[in-house]
């Protein structure tokens, strides 16, 4: 399968990429790891006229600590996030989520910025960002702004990011030693979650239980009110209306959400 024709520009800097985005408007797409965009282009579900490659921009990559936060550059690849001793120590749930994406080859290419921008409700890193209460940093023609995870994912493959903006970095609160749980239910190797659950510090996030990654707020409330993990998990699917596909119908997904939430709360790693 061959993508439709396009022009290719390797961006020289983040500001160069922003300039190109402004110049080409709707015709242009940013290319990071290409592991969501290129498959869509091969299927001709996406046909951008211009690809602006930010995958090689060192200024957007890298992992550091800034006060109480861990800051991850947008073009940091899943494999580097998963293998980073700093991430594994400061925010182990994030490293684990990255290690659950696809397979080794996919993790060598895909980036955290690409995954969050793509906003697949079944994906690992969007769910992790919601569970962690993190935020994303966006840069646009009028300067930069920051959006919290709960406000960033607005719909099915939709975010609050504007087309002329660039996601530059991801911020998550450092939480070394805080217990966390992660459950991803799949039937095939290298697949997206049929249902996923990430739990840490009283917050519970669900993957593939709706158009965006969701907070299991009823279960969180029950936990805060002193319910046991098993009791709280009974509320994990409250208010959700997940989609149906060949893997699972709605009731099965709702059932899975409860079982996986119980497991995520009971089998917490420190």
């Amino acid at each position: 399968m061959i993508p439709a024709q396009f022009d290719y520009v390797a961006a020289e800097s983040a500001s160069h990429a922003l300039g190109l985005l402004a110049e080409h408007g709707d015709e242009a797409k940013l290319l990071a790891g290409g592991h969501s965009l290129l498959p869509m282009m091969k299927l001709r579900l996406a046909q951008p006229k211009v690809l602006i490659d930010i995958g090689g921009l060192a200024e957007l990559a890298g992992i550091s600590v800034d006060g109480d936060d861990l800051v991850v550059g947008a073009t940091t690849r899943h494999a580097d996030l998963a293998a980073s001793d700093l991430v594994r120590h400061e925010v182990p749930l994030l490293a684990h989520a990255a290690s659950q994406v696809g397979d080794p080859q996919i993790r060598h290419r895909g980036t955290i910025g690409g995954s969050l921008s793509h906003a697949d409700p079944a994906a690992d890193l969007p769910m992790a960002l919601v569970a962690l209460g993190g935020s994303v940093e966006l840069q646009g023609p009028d300067g930069s702004r920051s959006i919290g995870a709960d406000d960033f994912f607005t719909g099915f493959f939709e975010t609050a990011m504007r087309p002329d903006e660039l996601l530059t970095a991801v911020r998550v609160p450092r939480q070394p030693g805080v217990p966390w749980g992660y459950q991803k239910f799949v039937r095939r190797a290298n697949d997206w979650a049929i249902v996923g659950v990430a739990a840490v510090d009283g917050r519970i996030a669900l993957a593939n239980m709706g158009p965006t990654p969701l907070r299991a707020t009823a279960a969180e409330k029950a936990l805060a009110g002193g319910a046991s993990p098993a009791q709280a998990a009974q509320h994990a699917a409250d208010g959700t209306s997940p989609g149906e596909d060949i893997h699972a119908d709605r009731e099965y997904r709702r059932h899975l959400a409860k079982v996986l939430t119980r497991r995520a709360l009971e089998h917490q790693a420190g």
Partner: peptide, 30 residues
């Protein structure tokens, strides 16, 4: 598969395994 699943197209890019059906030749430049 031509859809990033089977791995038959795996090569090393700067020493790391990648699926070459999902990498553009221009991305390998340099």
């Amino acid at each position: 598969c031509d859809t990033t699943s089977c791995g038959a197209c795996t090569v090393l890019l700067d020493g790391k395994s990648v699926k070459s059906c999902t990498v553009l030749a221009v991305q390998a430049s340099g």
